[in-house]
Each structure stands twice: as C-alpha cells, then as structure tokens.
Design a protein around this nucleic acid. Structure first.
Ligand code: MN
Ligand code: MN
Ligand code: ZN
Ligand code: ZN
Lengths: 170, 170
DNA sequence: CATTCTATTGAGATCGAGTCTCATTATCAA
DNA sequence: TTGATAATGAGACTCGATCTCAATAGAATG
C-alpha cells in the first residue's frame, strides 16, 4: 500500500516563492479574522501548520504533518496539530478526506474548487474529481428535503486505473 | 442531541410476522452461502444479530445493538457484534452510515434500494434520500477516471427541517 | 517598554471505539 | 457420536484523538 496521492487540482502557482508569499498573506488574514472573532490568537505554531498545508501538493495525514514540521521546529507537539487542524476546519480553510483505514487526511480548501474523492483501497491513491451536474442534483435533493447543508462527504472506494492495469482482477 | 432517526425506506412488510419469517429465511440463506464459501459457520449469535438488524426500523449503533440483544441473551459479547457486523458488510448485507461524531451506525442493505444520507448535526436525525440522476453522473465520473468502484459513501451534514423550524438560525 | 490578562503550548495522562488473545464451547460433516 | 475446526466472551490491548496542567507567549494598554 503506497501512500502516494494523485492530485489534479492543487494550485501550481504555489510553487513560485513570490506568489506563495502573497497567497500566504491573504490566507493568513482570513485565518486571523476568524481567530480574532473568537478572541483567539495567531501563534507561530498555527502559522507553521497553515504554511505546511499550503505548500503541500497532496493530502496529508496528521502524522505526516507532525513529522514534517518537527524537522524545522523540534518542540512542536501533536496536540497542537490536532487543535489547529480543528480550528482550520471550523474556519472552512481546511477539509478532511477520510481514508478506508481509520487515518484521515487533510487538504487546504481555500482558493480551490469544490471536488470529491475516489480512494483506491489497494494502493491508497486519492483521485480528485469534479462533477457539476452531480452537485446540481445533490442540491436538488437537499432542497426537496428542506435540509440546509453545512458540508458533505462524497467518497468513492474502489480500485484505481493503475492498480487495475497491474492486476486486472483484484 | 436526540438520536432518533427518520427512516423513509425501511420495508414496512417486515412488521408482519408471517412475511418477516419468510424474509428472514431468504436473507439467512444468503448469509449462510457466504459463510460456507469461506468455511465459516452459522451460529445462534450471528442469526440473532442479523434478525435484530432486519427488525430495526432505524439505523443502529453497535452499542444499541449490543444492549438490545443482551436483554434476550445476557451472555452475548461486544466482540461478537463487531465481528458479525464486519462479516455482514463483507457479504454486502449490511452498510455503515457514518455520523458526525465517531460512532458509526449500521443498516440492512439487502432488499432495499440504494440511497444516501443527510445527517442533522443538531439532533442526529438521519434522513435517507435517493437521486438516480446524481448516481448516474457519479457513474460517469467514475468511468472517466478509469476507476472501478466497490462502494461509496455520500453523506450530507447540516440542519434538518425540524431543527430549522425550531430555531431558524443555528 | 513594562504590565497584565488571557490564550496557547507540549508532555504525558486519559479516553474509547475497535481489535486481539486465549481458554472454553459450539457447529457440522462424517 | 465423534472429531476437526470455527466461534465465543472476558478482558487485555491498540492507537488515534482528547484532555490536564504548569509553563509560556500573544496582544492590548498605558
Ligand atoms: Mn482533495
Ligand atoms: Mn439508510
Ligand atoms: Zn490503486
Ligand atoms: Zn435535526
């Protein structure tokens, strides 16, 4: 089970330092506004975690984030990662992507189009996809039931193209 | 947070003893075939758990199932519930419905049409819905990506009609 | 800049759903 | 009935996630 993830929608411009700094500033401001609204503070650790998520080009698990951040800040604690991820989810800046095993992964949601995920149960690859028509009919169902949606989770589990090519029958 | 669940698709005929016995026999046969195929055995406990799921008119958590079964069989163990639920999922007879907190619920899938779920984050109510068009576009996306789907999880979290009526703004 | 009031942090304890171990018991085919 | 093998239940265990708490850091104020 190779934890590599295919990503088709992560912003390419984030690789260029100048644009990245600009992007970071704008996202940080959004975060800080949400924090301020609740009397919370922007700390070095919270900024580091947000920056790591923005620089990532794939979906990250808590432990990947922790180990990666620990290299440049050996004192950082796992509890802070959990706490900050939860804050970022409440802000709408980050979303959770469940995997078939119990370990969730996370992705930056800000400035990225809405999409859902196909998760390969064999190699763990996460394929992002968009289907505007699907979303439209989903919205119709929600309206028919008098429901007000806050978020949704639409994950398809199966075998990816490459795993099928490698071993046509599972 | 009231754990009551609105159910719109659970089979009504299951309430009539004669039809229920007939239905049980057919489902038990399916289960036994799957067990036999893997050299496993049909036990009293496995039958009790299956019967409880068939008689249920809502989505059940492990603990609800455990406490309910314990009344007529005080010796039954939690581990057996977990093991049997997993077997029934492998057989395709039972499906998991995730909730917003960490406790999954389960439902019988056999002889019921495919549907997805809206989950109220305020009262916990689970509303079942169907959208054939949504499924059709989902299948299109799956095919476009050369993926082979084994199962999917499509859950919409938000506020239900009744909670909205009670307190229009969250 | 120093002060002061809070919020935040990291280490480690704790929680809890789910899994595993193992001695005992049940299933089922012969 | 017997025997090979699978299943069970109690409780230990796993491990991701949360909580506790004493020490620290943010930021508002003057
Ligand atoms: Mn994604
Ligand atoms: Mn259902
Ligand atoms: Zn794969
Ligand atoms: Zn509700």
């Amino acid at each position: 089970m190779n934890p590599k993830a295919e990503v088709i929608l992560f912003p390419k411009h984030a690789r260029q330092p100048r644009q990245f700094r600009q992007w970071l500033a704008s996202i940080l401001q959004t975060f800080q506004e949400h924090l301020g609204r609740q009397g919370l503070k922007l700390t070095r650790q919270r900024e580091e975690i947000l920056r790591a998520l923005m620089a990532a080009e794939r979906h990250l698990g808590i432990d990947e984030l922790y180990l990666s951040l620990k290299r440049q800040d050996p004192s950082i604690g796992r509890a802070t990662i959990f706490r900050t991820i939860k804050l970022l989810q409440e802000c709408g800046l980050v979303a959770e992507v469940g995997s078939s095993n119990g370990r969730s992964k996370f992705e930056l949601k800000a400035d990225r189009p809405h999409h859902d995920h196909m998760i390969c149960v064999e190699c763990g690859r996460i394929t992002e996809f968009q289907s505007p028509m699907m979303e439209r009919f989903q919205d119709g169902a929600i309206r028919r039931h008098g429901f007000v949606a806050l978020w949704h989770r639409h994950e398809i589990f199966g075998r990816c193209r490459d795993c099928l090519k490698r071993r046509p029958r599972g």
